[in-house]
Design a protein around this nucleic acid. Structure first.
Length: 416
DNA sequence: CGTCCACAGGAATGACGGGCGG
DNA sequence: CCGCCCGTCATTCCTGTGGACG
């Protein structure tokens, strides 16, 4: 028997001996279920909007709004995959390309993804955005197709870069001779139109579909639907499902979060050798997910952002629970000195703090202290134990956890 | 009621590494 | 290989500002 076969047996055994899961893949949010409950209306509307492409007519641009986990991406993929098979059947020259703007990162890479989809190769970097755009345009025109570009999480790109990309895209049909482009824009931010040039907005938003958050009972039925396939018979308590639904509904009706909770709760139960997933497993899953999120976020920070976070930690430990920018900068500079690294400017630190804020690691808000200036008050949003855990296995920064900053006593004293 | 603190945060500019086309 | 352009990170310089204090 080869090694592979030995392992095969072990792994299979471990899978079949699970009393909890039948198929946990079903609970991942990139899994596309056969039906999407409570989204029939949106599916029908999006279907009506894209249907003309089967008759070789360009379809309207659409904008989909809704918070995360309300099914925008799922509905889009669902409708388009159906459309794709129909297009094959009728031999319609339809192609589509799904791009997640946040994942690809920049305007440049958004275009290069679109290029790759129509078979135009572009380098990782080096070209001007305009150049990539031209290649895309030419490639598109010469392939003689109806092209649907799905731009998911487009709000991220617009907030970072402005609407230049979209402006170009909306005007592209004027110069295309043999192909047509339609855009499906997906946004998590309902205020997106405030960031857009009104002209861009009106062309882009020929149609609009809004995705309301799911309520707790809708979430529960979604979970139950998937749980039938994902879990073994009787391995899931009703109370656990309800709790997952309730927690996710309280957040903002986020189905993704509900599914994550359920999956991790199942994993927790499995690890503990439990026969049934209970409410306690869900609660443990909740803190486990949060812990992982934070852990990943901190691990990927740059050195200086980590130092900023450490400075806030030190202030918090010394009893300064709402630190101001200046105090943080002092500690931060000291830590830099300890490491023999040149500190960044306070201006830079200010934007780093804002980044930590938008990641939810700290809470920063601008306040005026009248005579004593105008600044940001920064509060740590994490438990100090968590910070210690994350940094303690960092070879370089580990020793700074116990570091006793000289400027600390001053900050702490000047309070109270 | 004006002053003035301690910054916020925009704009311009620069250093750097990566990749192009010629 | 060169000159050029890009995106990213950071600095420098700047104008703006809410409200306690005098």
């Amino acid at each position: 028997m080869t090694d592979g076969n030995i392992l095969e047996e072990i792994f299979n055994k471990s899978i079949t001996s699970s009393h909890i899961f039948k198929d946990r893949e079903v609970l991942r949010h990139d899994y596309l279920p056969e039906k999407l409950p409570h989204r029939e209306e949106q599916i029908r509307r999006l279907g009506e909007i894209v249907a003309p492409v089967l008759k070789n007519v360009r379809c309207s641009n659409v904008f989909l709004y809704g918070k995360t986990g309300t099914g925008k991406t799922a509905v889009t993929k669902y409708v388009l995959s159906y459309l794709e098979s129909k297009a094959k059947e009728f031999d319609a020259p339809v192609r589509f390309c799904y791009v997640n703007c946040r994942m690809v990162g920049s305007e440049y890479r958004t275009f290069s993804s679109l290029c790759k989809n129509i078979g135009v190769s572009v380098p990782f970097t080096g070209l001007s955005v305009g150049e990539v755009f031209d290649r895309f345009k030419n490639g598109l025109d010469s392939s003689k197709i109806l092209f649907i570009a799905v731009l998911d999480e487009i709000d991220v790109l617009i907030k970072a870069r402005g609407d230049g990309l979209l402006y170009e895209l909306t005007r592209i049909n004027e110069t295309l001779r043999n192909s047509k482009l339609s855009i499906i824009g997906i946004s998590n931010d309902l205020r997106l139109k405030e960031f857009l040039d009104p002209r861009v907005f009106s062309t882009l938003s020929e149609e609009e579909i809004v995705f309301r958050p799911y309520d707790a009972s809708e979430l529960k039925s979604i979970l139950l639907e998937r749980a039938r396939i994902a879990f073994c018979e009787g391995a899931l308590s009703d109370a656990a499902v309800s709790l997952c639904a309730a927690l996710a509904a309280a957040e903002h009706g986020d189905a993704r979060r509900a599914l994550d909770l359920l999956r991790v709760a199942g994993e927790v139960a499995e690890r503990k050798g439990a026969q049934i997933v209970l409410e306690d497993h869900v609660r443990e899953a909740e803190s486990c997910i949060e812990h992982n999120r934070v852990f990943e976020a901190i691990k990927n920070l740059t050195l200086h952002s980590k130092l900023v976070l450490l400075s806030i930690y030190h202030l918090s430990r010394a009893g300064v629970h709402r630190a101001i920018t200046g105090e943080i900068y002092e500690i931060y500079s000291e830590l830099c000195g300890e490491l023999g690294v040149a500190p960044l400017t306070q201006r830079r630190l200010s934007t780093l703090i804002n980044e930590l804020d938008s990641m939810g690691l700290v809470n920063a808000k601008v306040v005026s202290m009248g005579r004593y200036g105008r600044t940001k008050k920064i509060r740590l949003e994490l438990s100090r134990t968590l910070i210690r855990n994350v940094f303690s296995d960092d070879s370089r920064l580990g020793r700074l956890i116990e570091y006793d900053a000289k400027s600390l006593s001053r900050s702490a004293r000047s309070r109270s």
